[in-house]
Design a binder for these strands. Structure first.
Length: 438
RNA sequence: GUGCCCAUGGUGUAACGGUUAACACAGCGGUUUGUGGUACCGCUAAUUCGGGUUCGAUUCCCGAUGGGCACCCCA
């Protein structure tokens, strides 16, 4: 007997299945997020995963890491240059313009959720396909919206019981940013020879990035560097101050951090990132966002102020799970179901009963009960095991005898008490019993 | 792109330069076929691949591949 070798296919690097066991946590998070977005007046939009390459290049920025080395870009059979979306905002803006949403009552608020793709080397909390949940507000430049967005993020994590730290900065508008960049360049020029190799590259390419270099030497130099907040123009400064005032009033914790610059080019003014507390270092960023007042215009729409944020679902799920599992059951603020349950399990015995069970199942299901079954099994024992696994509250047993008498045996799974009920009354009895359990 | 770590059934672990590679969990089946949660029994199932050292390698060495982690950057 030769063992034939058949090729097994496995997951592509950086891709993950969300297996049934993980769905409980996953759904719990998604449910919380979308309910919150609904409550804050956002409407859901589903956007395509593939879009024109240029859409991302333009909006995210042609010099950014995302575009230069992380995009899943390819040519279709029709020779179109396309890419798997690396983030959600570009698509949302495209949709805003494409559907003439500028004619809608402002502000226009949308949320989305789904897979994003970046060709990176995977590691903890980082995948090539990952999921984001994002909210976008179009047509409103009042700083209270900035504050509200940040406030909302805070509340989401508070509700999930995940300790976070929100870091906020203002990176100004184009004008003040250019002033600032000049000042920064001037300052760093003196220290250029002392900066690390990477920072020397950054000096010409993306000088803002030097601000959050991890090298000790660079950090020392950067500590005394001019900060953008001191270079904001009057309007940007007022906007920032107002935003912070609103946040002060809302009494949520945040920290100012002049080094938040965001890796996407479209941001201006308010920029913020959400970090997991008590976790230093790697992949502790759970989300981020900011204003992008010129992006709509840049993508062919009217000049429209906008602000938004995106959260990383994998990272949230993983933190939630950690926190949840480490909290003793009686101290938890909420319960996450981790297995399926059912109200009633239907067990059948013998050919006659087996023929009736499909219809019986559906009859009870349509009444709104959670019904369990394992029609493919014949031994009653196996079916009872399944009922037990499903934590069924009751079990209906239909066998030869019951078919003859047109009755159904109903067993309380906790007490083990059994009762014979005429089959016509089964729904009534089930209802009564379930109500009494509540 | 740079650096570090790891590789045994589905999962989590064990073992030794030398007989049928062990254990637990899960899965499946059974303990006289109309009763679950416990117990007992049985079955299924693994040394990533290719070289080398050796009488003999799952074990030691090298390479490949795969996985994990860190930097960079980000969610």
């Amino acid at each position: 007997m030769k063992k034939q070798k058949i090729k097994k296919y496995s997951l592509l690097k950086g891709f993950k299945d969300i297996v049934p066991e993980d769905q409980f946590y996953w759904n719990f998070v998604l449910d919380k997020l979308s309910k919150c977005a609904d409550a804050y007046g956002f409407e859901k939009i589903d956007l395509p995963i593939v879009e024109e390459y240029g859409l991302f290049a333009r909006s995210v920025g042609t010099d950014t890491d995302i575009v230069t080395k992380e995009m899943f870009a390819f040519e279709t059979l029709g020779k179109e240059k396309v890419a798997l979306r690396p983030e959600g905002t570009a698509g949302a803006v495209r949709a805003y313009v494409e559907h003439g949403m500028m004619n809608k009552r402002k502000p226009v608020k949308m949320y989305y959720e789904g897979p994003m793709f970046r060709y990176e080397k995977p590691q903890a909390g980082r995948f090539r396909q990952f999921h984001q949940f994002g909210c976008e507000v179009f047509g409103e430049d009042d700083p209270i919206v900035d504050a509200q967005i940040i406030y909302m993020c805070y509340q989401i994590f508070d509700e999930l019981n995940i300790p976070i730290e929100i870091k906020i900065n203002s990176i100004g508008c184009n004008t003040c940013r250019n002033h600032y960049l000049k000042a920064l360049k001037l300052y760093l020029k003196k220290y250029k020879s002392k900066l690390c190799v990477d920072c020397n590259k950054r000096y010409n390419k993306n000088i803002l990035r030097i601000l959050d270099c991890k090298e000790k030497k660079c950090q020392e130099i950067v500590a005394d560097a001019p900060q953008i907040v001191d270079h904001l123009c009057t309007d940007c400064n007022t906007h920032f101050v107002k935003t912070l005032e609103y946040l002060e009033e809302s009494q949520i914790a945040y920290t100012l951090n002049p080094f938040i610059v965001r890796g996407l080019d479209y941001y201006n003014r308010t920029a913020f990132e959400i970090f997991c507390k008590e976790e230093d270092g790697s992949q502790s960023a759970l989300g981020g966002g900011g204003r992008y007042d010129s992006l709509v215009r840049m993508l062919g729409g009217q000049k429209t102020p906008a602000i938004g944020f995106a959260l990383g679902i994998e990272r949230i799920v993983s933190r939630l799970r950690d926190m949840y599992e480490k909290t003793p059951a009686d101290e938890r603020k909420f319960e996450i179901p981790t297995s399926k349950t059912c109200d009633v399990f239907i067990a059948q015995l013998g050919d006659g009963a087996r023929k009736k069970v499909l219809v019986l199942f559906e009859k009870i299901r349509r009444e709104g009960f959670l019904v369990g079954e394992s029609v493919s099994k014949t031994a009653l024992k196996q079916q009872m095991e399944e009922a037990d696994r499903l934590k069924a509250k009751m079990c209906l047993i239909v066998g030869q005898k019951e078919i003859m008498d047109d009755t159904i045996l109903i067993r309380d799974m906790e007490s083990g008490n059994q009762e014979i009920v005429p089959s016509g009354q089964i729904l009534k009895v089930l209802r009564r019993r379930l109500d009494s359990l509540k």
